[in-house]
Design a protein around this nucleic acid. Structure first.
Length: 568
DNA sequence: CATCCAATAT
DNA sequence: AATATTGGAT
């Protein structure tokens, strides 16, 4: 054991020690030096803070006494946590539970009791290492690049493990009976496995190879060959996967909102382009074309065997178009993957991609989505007002109100070309979602969107093809903003269904991550159940994007006669 | 508060 | 290994 630590011991770690008691400080310094650290001693917190802020000397670790005049250890800890990323160890004679708890809650990585022993100090380097490793882990979870020294990774719990037998600090201290150790370690939480796109793909691949009937966690683990995964985490994931399968199978054509709600699709799932036991009927993820549908290249993933899964967003809202208001859509969608989709994916779509590679099962149930997409499509890079970029919040001082943003976006809002006069889609209230601003919060908020639509006649003769495109993504916590997931309505509106009877149908609003808030809004008269007509809608066949982009209006959609009623 | 989801318990 | 429950999180 000693040999092990010897080998790994990082000599000369720069330690800043703070204590108003000079004697204690001297002792501490001696111990630190003996343990081959590189200590700097300071007698008050303010000076310490100054030094840290000045940044002339860099430190790896801070040890601070708790009780100090002027500024105490907790305050110092708080400020350090706030301003810099340094492990802080608290030092105190106070073994009171409250005090220790305070240390913990304030984010100390260790709480040592005075008098400190060599043994306590000997091991404090672990906190520096631990931090490094945590960074590495999160990096791994968020990165495609696996070139790390993963062997070095601290397994949960190990870092803080310490046996009582090696605790020398109790020597000659009989009064210490209530403490097993003067060393109270604050263990790091176990890092959760993030099922990234890559992981999920590997997972599905493994299932494919083994076969759904024979698959067991252990085998998956072997096949996946990802060192930091455990059999347990795979088992857990498999459990979820199976549950999901069950759901889908029991209700293969089930209410779309039910399916939409299902999180498995919504997960990092690349279901859309892997095999998919779950899509016996649908052939591809019935889930969102969430930004999750990026392949490893960051492009839209290639869908395997997907036919007829194009969904016409615009179909959903027949006459009596809802005035669709989605206030405070604060969480737009998840992008749990590690990959940053290309900033401008729109330009990266291979021209030979066929349209139905864009699953557009959801998102398009709001006509506004289509419109927004259209806007984005046409307005890319055309915002000339710089203030626009930083404006996300109406209430931020000095920032434009969102209405102003709308006014100032120098975009000509395109009209949807229409074939029949019965269709009217004014876009008065449509707006391009404000760009998100990097903030303290890790979720992107998108302030009150208001969408106002006009009605249009579903039995009309226009066409619409929607697809989802992505602009960019938010690395980090895995949420994306509305800005990034747009329904792009590239032209016209197809009314594949004629003579629909509008009946007690609701329209849906939902969080883009398919989260918890799917709801059915009662709508005035005259809406159509999209899902009733899914199959018909889905009869639309492949459309080459070449055609589409070159001449969206006249792109040729092949639609089964029975659907179109012979009328194309 | 409901729901999700990986971890953990059974 | 399969399934149920928990606990942290949104």
């Amino acid at each position: 054991m000693a040999a092990m630590s010897e080998k790994k011991f990082p000599e000369g770690l720069r330690v800043l020690a703070v204590d108003d008691d000079c004697v204690c400080l001297k002792v501490l310094e001696a111990i630190l030096r003996r343990c081959k650290y590189n200590p700097t001693m300071v007698t008050d917190a303010k000076t310490a803070l100054k030094m840290l802020r000045a940044g002339k000397q860099e430190f790896d670790l801070v040890i601070t006494d708790v009780r100090m005049p002027d500024m105490d250890g907790f305050k110092l800890l708080q400020l350090i946590r706030l301003e810099m990323d340094l492990p802080v160890i608290m030092l105190s004679v106070d073994c009171d539970k409250k005090a220790v708890m305070k240390g913990i809650t304030h984010g100390a990585c260790d709480y040592l009791l005075k008098p400190v022993s060599t043994n306590d100090i000997k091991n404090i380097w672990q906190h520096v290492e631990k931090r490094k490793n945590l960074e590495a882990i999160s990096h791994i979870n968020n990165n495609n690049d696996h070139d790390y020294d993963i062997d070095d990774r601290v397994q949960p719990g190990t870092a803080a493990t310490r046996t009582d037998s090696e605790n020398e600090s109790n020597e000659g201290d009989g009064s210490n009976e209530n403490e097993e150790s003067t060393h109270i370690s604050i263990t790091q939480k176990k890092t959760r496995v993030v099922w990234t796109i890559e992981l999920q793909n590997k997972f599905l691949e493994a299932i494919n190879k083994i076969g759904l009937d024979k698959v067991v966690p252990k085998r998956i683990l072997e096949l996946m060959n990802v060192d930091y995964l455990t059999r347990e985490s795979i088992a857990s994931h498999l459990q979820k996967y199976r549950l999901q399968l069950k759901k889908v199978k029991s209700n293969p054509s089930g209410e779309a909102y039910e399916r939409r709600k299902s999180s498995y699709n919504n997960m990092n799932n690349q279901g859309s382009f892997m095999h998919n036991h779950e899509h016996e009927r649908w052939h591809m993820s019935s889930g969102l074309l969430s930004p999750n549908n990026f392949g490893a290249t960051g492009h839209l993933a290639q869908l395997a065997n997907t036919h007829r899964n194009l969904c016409m967003g615009s179909l959903i809202h027949d006459g009596g178009m809802l005035k669709h208001v989605t206030p405070q859509l604060s969480v737009a969608g998840r992008f749990p993957g590690s990959i940053d989709p290309p900033a401008n994916l729109y330009n990266n779509i291979a021209s030979d991609t066929t349209l139905d590679e864009f699953a557009s099962y959801s998102f398009c149930d709001s006509y506004a989505d289509c419109m927004r997409g259209k806007l984005v499509e046409t307005s890319k890079g055309k915002f000339s007002d710089p203030s626009y970029k930083s404006a996300t919040h109406a209430t931020l001082p000095g920032v434009l109100h969102r209405d102003e943003i709308q006014m100032r976006s120098h975009v000509n809002i395109p009209r949807i070309p229409r074939a029949t006069p019965s269709i009217q889609m004014p876009l008065q209230n449509e707006m391009v979602p404000p760009k998100m601003v990097k903030g303290a919060s890790n979720s992107t908020s998108l302030e009150g969107f208001s969408e106002q639509m006009a009605s249009f006649n579903i039995a009309g003769n226009t066409r619409s093809v929607g697809m989802m495109l992505n602009e960019n993504s938010t690395p980090g916590n895995g949420r994306i903003s509305m800005t990034q997931a747009h329904m792009v309505n590239s032209g016209s509106t197809i009314s594949a269904v004629s003579n629909l009877h509008a009946e007690n149908i609701g329209a849906m609003t939902h969080r883009l991550d398919g989260g918890d808030t799917v709801s059915i809004h009662p709508v005035q008269e005259g809406t159509v159940d999209q899902y009733l007509y899914n199959d018909q809608v889905n009869e639309i066949d492949d459309i080459s994007l070449d055609d589409f982009f070159s001449d969206p209006l006249n792109a040729d959609f092949t639609i089964a006669d029975d659907v179109m009623g012979g009328e194309e």
